[in-house]
């Protein structure tokens, strides 16, 4: 994936948004935007051409799983890769996210190595599919 890829980070905790943003910058992805829940993320997504979304699950307003479903249900955004980074670690939830069309699932607390692995895998698949 192009290092200029436009990435949206969605999390209700500002510290977590900052951590993910810094990690993405370390990996060379500097073109990031932040939103504090699905509801604020949705108009931002519709207004801009985002290449990738990193979202938390449990957020007030609109949860990450609903944001994911909205993305998959929108003709223009449907193919945008979505990585879920969440503390929700129940088997049923991982299956639910997979069924909703998530591209990667990271359980908090996570490491920089895990984030890199998942992003590389998602971007590799996107490149193969293109």
């Amino acid at each position: 994936m192009d290092k200029n890829a436009k990435i949206l980070i969605v999390d209700d905790y500002s510290t977590m948004r900052r951590i993910v943003k810094n990690l993405l910058h370390d990996l060379g992805y500097a073109n990031t935007t932040e939103a504090d829940d699905g509801r604020t993320a949705w108009p931002i997504l519709q207004a801009g051409d985002f290449d990738f979304v990193v979202t938390d699950w449990n957020m007030p307003g609109m949860t990450g799983i609903d944001l994911l479903r909205n993305i998959r249900g929108d003709a223009r955004l449907a193919k945008t890769p979505v990585l879920m980074v969440t503390a929700e670690a129940q088997r049923d939830q991982i299956i639910e996210a997979a069924q909703a069309g998530v591209n990667g699932y990271i359980i908090k607390p996570f490491t920089a190595v895990t984030l890199k692995e998942k992003i590389d895998k998602i971007f590799q698949r996107a490149a193969t599919a293109a």
């Binding site: 905790y13 510290t15 977590m16 900052r18 951590i19 810094n22 503390a87 908090k108 607390p109």
Partner: peptide, 13 residues
């Protein structure tokens, strides 16, 4: 520095 930043995950959890 990366590890220090990552350790701040505790605040979210």
């Amino acid at each position: 520095m990366t590890s220090l930043a990552m350790a701040q995950e505790y605040q979210d959890l």
